Computed example of a mutant assay.
Amino acid sequence: MEHPLFALKAGDRRVRTYERNGLVVTVKPGSDGCATIHDKDLWIYCISQLVEAKNRGRPITSTVRFTAYDFLRSTNRSTGGLGYRRIVGMLARLRGTGIETNIETNGQRERRGFGLIDSWRIVEKSPTDDCVTAIEVDLPHWLFRSVATMRVLTLSRDYFKLRKPLERRIYELARKHCGLQPKWRVSVTILYAKSGSTATLKEFRRQIKELSNINLLPDYQISLDTERDHVTFFAKKEER
């Protein structure tokens, strides 16, 4: 969640590079475009299925099998025909988006490349009926390892009710950095860089101000200090 791997705008075909504390992350879209933050719902859903199975003491593998209906219902999507058809595009973008990073260990530098998912398979009723009955997704080793060792953050179920991409990204950052702490303070410029927003910094400030006014984020409340140009996230269950 530290780097904005998922595009905030549909159709984003830019090669995006982010650098912080010596770590460089490059996101390269595939032929179907870059995976978006709404495509990420499928990623999150797969992770949640593994976490639930692990919590119940069941063995897990990097292959996740599920029904399209359960995915659509769990992520607050329409279960009509359009919802089913959109799943194919989500899978294609997740499979096509590539991530490259540089890692330094023991004085040696490595460059690594990986995808958001390794492969996918959809089972349909028949050659003449494109109704999706089952989906299989193979998660990459690095992601499966994080789940297996429980190094993943849980998200509020209300996350899927957030429709605007920036709202989702800001919530993710608050969840990561604030977590169970009473608050997290960050400068607007750093938050802007972490968000992956394609808006101008001026427009981003306006959007954050709007978010702080409507106060719709699950779990956290936003306070924008325009004089110091920083944002503070407060856990809603805590007294300010």
Rank of each mutant, 00 (worst) to 15 (best):
N213T: 11
S195L: 01
L50S: 05
R58W: 03
V132L: 06
I44N: 04
V137N: 02
G57T: 03
D129I: 02
D32M: 08
E210G: 12
T154R: 12
G83A: 09
S212L: 09
R77K: 14
I170V: 14
T226Q: 15
S62P: 05
K176S: 02
A92Q: 15
T26Q: 14
T133Q: 10
M1H: 01
R157T: 03
V25T: 08
C131F: 08
V186N: 06
S195M: 00
G113F: 15
L180G: 08
R157K: 06
K28S: 14
Q108T: 11
T97L: 11
S146G: 06
R163G: 10
K40E: 14
K236D: 01
V25G: 01
K236M: 08
R95T: 07
T189I: 07
E238S: 10
G96T: 10
R175Q: 08
R151L: 07
Y45S: 05
G113C: 14
G33L: 13
T189A: 11
I135N: 00
L143F: 08
S78F: 09
R95E: 15
R58C: 05
L216I: 10
L153D: 05
R13G: 14
R85I: 02
T17S: 11
I47C: 09
R86V: 02
Y220M: 05
G57Y: 07
D39V: 04
S119V: 03
L116K: 01
N215S: 14
T101H: 07
I87E: 01
T61G: 15
I214T: 12
R73V: 13
C178A: 13
T189V: 08
P29N: 11
R240T: 11
F160C: 05
R175L: 05
D41N: 08
I214K: 14
R145S: 10
F204M: 02
E104W: 09
F144W: 03
V231Y: 09
T105R: 15
L23A: 05
I60D: 01
L162G: 05
T154E: 12
L42T: 02
D158P: 02
I117G: 05
L216S: 11
N76V: 07
N76H: 06
A10C: 08
A68D: 02
I135H: 00
L72S: 08
T97I: 09
Y45M: 05
P59T: 01
T232Q: 13
A92K: 15
E227T: 11
D70V: 02
Q108A: 15
R121P: 02
R109V: 13
T226N: 12
S119E: 12
T97R: 09
R228W: 07
A174D: 01
K194G: 00
G83L: 11
V88C: 03
A134F: 07
I99A: 07
V64F: 03
R185Y: 06
